[in-house]
Amino acid sequence: MTRRLFPTTRGSVVAALASDESADRARAFDTLVGIYWTPLHRYAQNVHRRTDADDLTQAFLAVAFERESLSAYDVRKGSFRTFLRTLFDRFIANRIRDEGRLKRGGDLKRVDLTEHAAAETPDVLFEREWARSVFTVALERLRQSIDDTAFAMFEEYDLRGGARYAELAAKFAVPETTVTNRLALARRTLRKIVLDLLREITGSEHEFRAEARALLGSDA
């Protein structure tokens, strides 16, 4: 049975985090860690200038995906991504405060967020790293979804760029039409994977559409 913390969206792991079933929660945890570990880690490093970003991200994720931590999340008020980042900001602020206490008066350097805002805002950095992470996970799923030759063609033509159909046809000893067909299949599959992944990591249709716009630049 699932507690209705969120409106039910088919396949949403954000909703599954609130499940009473530990298996559902574990699956949701794995997916969200896969997406968010790197963006949070880079955020801790680049925005908060933490040298202990590894430990900090690890510790945060361990507590963040507990049901109690997420009870404040309201899907109507904003994206899960923004909510998680706000929780992370608070987590780091608490950590800095605790470290300060330990040092009796706190001789730790407190990092002013505005100090680093000149080049890139925290929002932009987090969104960029999130996009990179979503595509990285999607690529891994693509690798598992299509045959090795099609994935290799896709890697050379679409991911690295610079290859030509004729070169790929010669390299893989297939006609050019096979190359274009395999590439078309890979692209179509990747598109489906990306959209399915976005549905998984969002809590509502509205949020899904907003995140698709953020990731792809247009409605999904």
Binding site: R132, F135, L159, T180, R187
Partner: peptide, 21 residues
């Protein structure tokens, strides 16, 4: 992790319409 250029290429790939055939 993939590069910024690769992310941009993937964005285009995912949105580019397939009219082959």
């Amino acid at each position: 992790m993939i590069s910024d250029q690769a992310v941009e290429r993937l964005r285009t790939v995912v949105t580019w319409p397939d009219f082959s055939g």
